[in-house]
Amino acid sequence: MADFEPTIIAFVCNWCTYTAADLAGTSRLGYPANVRLIRVMCTGMVDPKYVIKAFLEGADAVLVSGCHPGDCHYINGNYKARRRIKLLKEILPQFGFGDERLRLTWIGASDGIQFAETIRDMVTQIKSLGPNEAKGTMVI
């Protein structure tokens, strides 16, 4: 398991977490290359299907990250995202996609340091958890 490099799919909102990732980059903060960022306009547009598909395709973890409560560019998209993540956190663990593999965080545009830390922490967690077993199945 020592050489297991997890793949983390991160849906990040354009206005906050993507900007934070950009800030981390321009500030030359290092973070593991395990994360694949997908920029969305708002966490409120992250359809539960996207998360389900990521897991079924073998993602070891999924991160959805957007603006802090009250800061959503579209007023309340992040509150809607929170309900959807709650829903997925009830459904997916029943099929072996553990609760720790799906994360929701609020990372504001100026939180470059926090973004890099979040990714580092997640990678450490998922490494100790091991790979997503969907990777080895013949079902797409």
Partner: peptide, 30 residues
């Protein structure tokens, strides 16, 4: 999880159609 019983009453909002500002803090964070 949403303390929802389908079909109980037309007054109960479907859980994914509404939200509250102050709720579900347990799903946030790593």
């Amino acid at each position: 999880a949403f303390e929802y019983e389908p079909g109980r009453s037309v007054e109960d909002d479907p859980p994914l159609s509404v939200f509250r500002e102050d709720e579900l803090s347990d799903v946030v964070g790593i």
